[in-house]
Design a protein around this nucleic acid. Structure first.
Length: 738
DNA sequence: AGCACGCCGACT
DNA sequence: GTCGGCGTGCTC
């Protein structure tokens, strides 16, 4: 690597909240040093600490006084991890989301790399030997419970990394040593997962014959050198097959592909489908990985050894030499927007920008496109490609509303739905019920004085969890024992309302002959458990499925012929401007789980307000018609995507402190009459986890004007005095305003 | 964010 | 007399 000799100053992004790059002198120490180049990680002195940062620019001079400049200690990479294009995406993101640059880089790097590791350390994996499999029930283990547990844990997978054992077991290493001596288990070192880097990119499985609509979509995408596309196709229309065909073409010309999935959409099943189809090295970046697996997959991608990168939100920053295509599956999914912490970016929006900068096509796929994307189609910023038909002979599901006022309701389920369940179950099919409320009941109420169990730390009721026999707060995680009598008046307390746990109980009483599978965070804590539950459904062992959001994404259950949506009303009267869009997307997505086989699916939506225009319109006109009129309303009300929002969110130990801060922020000067600062408001749930939350909205019809305002405003907000104990974050393009 | 420096209350 | 509370300020 050569370096212009006069470019002595390295501008480095460091993980601090300081919104600035830090200037360092090129490394001066003795010994062979690689010259620092943009995109390389460096270790630098920072005050009394040492930090790892990324070189962003080389300069020939610095604004910083020469006596303050210190040299880089070590250059950690021989080749840049980030290309100029990668760096410019990160700089753009820091600028647009008004977030400190170093923390943007930190979000883009896996933890080990962020801390200076090279990400290529081999990991130790453990597996059973043949003798170990035979010994699973050996009597010798009766007096060695830790060894038995380890053996059973390892039996669940072909290979288990040490890090995974650290998480699920404690002090397993002694047991492992004993088992190794018995020759029942063994360990191996695993290196890069891109061993097949030079394999031919031939297709493995035989390709299905595309439908005419699929063929047309594939044609249009292949003909496009770059640009954004909205692949708008109902569930079952075969969007994945379109992705796979286009990906195959990109791989064939030697380019690589970035595929983004929603958080719960990235399953081993999907990965498996890619592995079956392509004989190409794949790097998967999902939440189930250990730190070292993640670092290794990331480095594999950055070094150009992976041809396909599949990942969730943060994978949008993965460097990929020769990027040829970006695919964003289920583009409407809210998990693409980071909604916690400081750096709140939209991976979908950044992917579109990345595609434009690198001049590669970006395909957004959804059966229920976001209004943003539909508006982008209207503005001709995205090209619309629709896949109207369901593949094969499948019929679209039939949607009906069930009026809960007109029918007897048995523990949260109306009679027509119970009868339909009976019918479908007797016909041998599976039934899926959706209820976006986990736990047994959303509150514990006193029959005498109307007291209901409150969370000590939040403005919320505690949820009853029957099996654990505890009360839990779903907002802060607090738990307490479940009282049998009212602490205020001593009268009896009762669980009020219905969560998935209670519906499961009700169904077990009502349909004792059919096995039930519950899908929520309480029953399926780990990815493995989810996989096992899906297997039980697909094998036909389970007949009734009841679950939350977890059930609505990514998994297809071909034998489900009836879907029940138990409570569609929660969002009908929400004040959030996106509530209607989200409800429609949920209904259509859940409905899409039914009727994939030859028989038409049936979808029953329970409501107290079946005449609500939101519901009737969705049923009569479908998602497209619904979305069109939703857009009209947004335009009239000047909501996004017709205006641009930013929300300043803050929390503090007292309500007064958080409001004082936001009022000070609201009082800062604003010379642009096209930018409106709304009044600071306490959040819908003001007190959460013993902190008081509030926010203020800033809006403009003009994105550029809002950006220019934020450029001036955010540094002043940052400089406001008296912010000890106060946490704040700016949310540009928020999903929610409250 | 860390990690210092810097001034005011209760302890050996 | 100091140990330590966390308020303010800086890090190239």
């Amino acid at each position: 690597v050569t370096q212009e000799p006069r470019l002595k100053i390295c501008q480095v992004a460091l993980d601090t909240p300081v919104r600035r790059l830090f200037d360092y002198l090129s490394p001066s120490g003795p010994g062979p040093q690689v010259a620092a180049q943009p995109g390389m990680r460096v270790r630098v002195p920072f005050g009394r600490q040492q930090l790892v940062g990324v070189v962003v620019h080389l300069r020939d001079h610095s604004e910083i006084a020469p006596d303050k400049l210190r040299p880089i200690l070590t250059v950690l990479d021989e080749q840049p991890l980030f290309s100029e294009a990668d760096l410019s995406l990160l700089l753009w993101a820091a600028n647009y989301y008004h977030h400190p640059i170093g923390q943007v880089f930190a979000a883009a790097l896996p933890r080990l790399l962020r801390e200076g590791d090279d990400g290529l350390r081999p990991t130790t994996v453990w597996c059973l030997t043949a003798a170990g499999h035979a010994a699973l029930n050996d009597a010798a283990l009766n007096r060695a419970p830790k060894q038995r547990l380890l053996l059973q844990t390892l039996a669940q997978n072909t290979e288990t990394p040490s890090a995974a054992l650290n998480e699920s077991l404690t002090e397993w290493r002694n047991a492992a040593r004993a088992l190794v001596e018995k020759c029942w288990i063994e360990s191996h070192q695993r290196n890069s997962n891109a061993d097949a880097a030079n394999a031919a990119m031939t297709l493995r499985e035989t390709e299905p014959v595309p439908s005419s609509a699929q063929a047309a979509a594939i044609q249009r995408l292949l003909a496009a050198p770059h640009g954004g596309f909205l692949l708008d196709g109902v569930t079952g229309s075969g969007k994945t097959e379109v992705y796979l065909r286009v990906i195959a073409a990109v791989l064939a010309r030697g380019d690589s592909v970035l595929v983004l999935c929603p958080e719960i959409g990235l399953t081993p099943q999907l990965l498996h489908r890619f592995e079956q189809r392509f004989n190409a090295p794949i790097a998967a970046l999902h939440s189930g990985l250990t730190d070292s697996e993640r670092a290794r997959a990331w480095v594999t991608a950055a070094r150009g050894q992976a041809r396909i990168v599949i990942g969730t939100r943060s994978a949008v920053f993965t460097p990929l030499p020769r990027l040829g295509l970006i695919v964003i599956d289920e583009e409407h999914d809210s998990s693409y927007k980071q909604q916690e912490g400081g750096f709140r970016y939209s991976a979908r929006d950044l992917a579109l920008l990345r595609g434009a900068q690198e001049k590669v096509p970006v395909v957004l796929g959804s059966a229920t496109p976001s209004l943003e994307s539909l508006q982008n189609v209207a503005m001709q910023r995205l090209t619309h490609i629709s896949l109207p038909e369901r593949a094969g002979t499948a019929q679209p599901p039939r949607l009906v509303l069930v009026d809960m006022r007109a029918h007897a309701v048995h523990k949260g389920i109306a009679m027509p739905l119970l009868q339909a369940m009976q019918r479908h179950l007797e016909a041998g099919a599976q039934v899926l019920l959706y209820l976006n409320r986990r736990g047994y009941a959303p509150s514990l109420v006193c029959q005498g004085c109307n007291w209901s169990a409150p969370c000590r730390s939040c403005d919320a009721r505690l949820t009853v969890h029957q099996r654990a026999d505890r009360l839990a707060c779903h907002h802060c995680g607090a738990e307490e024992p479940r009282p049998t009598r009212c602490p205020r008046c001593g009268y009896e307390v009762h669980a009020l309302g219905h969560g998935t746990e209670r519906v499961e109980e009700t169904l077990a009483e009502r349909f004792p002959q059919y096995a039930i599978e519950r899908f929520d965070r309480d029953t399926l804590r780990q990815q493995q458990e989810l996989e096992a539950a899906i297997d039980r459904v697909n094998s036909g062992a389970a007949r009734i499925l009841i679950g939350t959001q977890m059930l609505t994404k990514g998994h297809h259950f071909p034998d489900v012929s009836l879907v029940g949506i138990l409570n569609a009303d929660q969002s009908l009267f929400s004040t959030d401007f996106r509530a209607a869009e989200r409800l429609a997307q949920t209904i259509v997505q859940v409905a899409g789980r039914a009727g994939r086989a030859e028989r038409a699916g049936e979808v029953m939506i329970q409501s107290q307000y079946p005449e609500h225009p939101l519901l009737t319109q969705l049923l009569q006109e479908g998602y497209a018609g619904f979305a069109a009129s939703c857009l009209t309303e947004r335009a009239a009300a000047h909501w996004p995507p017709f205006s641009r929002l930013a929300v300043l969110r803050a929390s503090a130990a007292t309500a007064a402190a958080v409001m004082r801060f936001l009022q000070a922020a609201a009082a800062l000067p604003n010379s642009d009459t096209h930018v409106v600062m709304r009044h600071p408001m306490p959040s819908t749930m003001h007190r959460r986890a013993d902190r008081y939350h509030a926010q203020m909205v800033v809006e403009s019809l003009d994105r550029m004007r809002l950006q220019k305002f934020l450029d001036l405003w955010v540094p002043q907000v940052e400089a406001l005095p008296g912010t000890q104990g106060l946490r704040w974050a700016l949310d540009v393009d928020p999903l929610e305003v409250f």
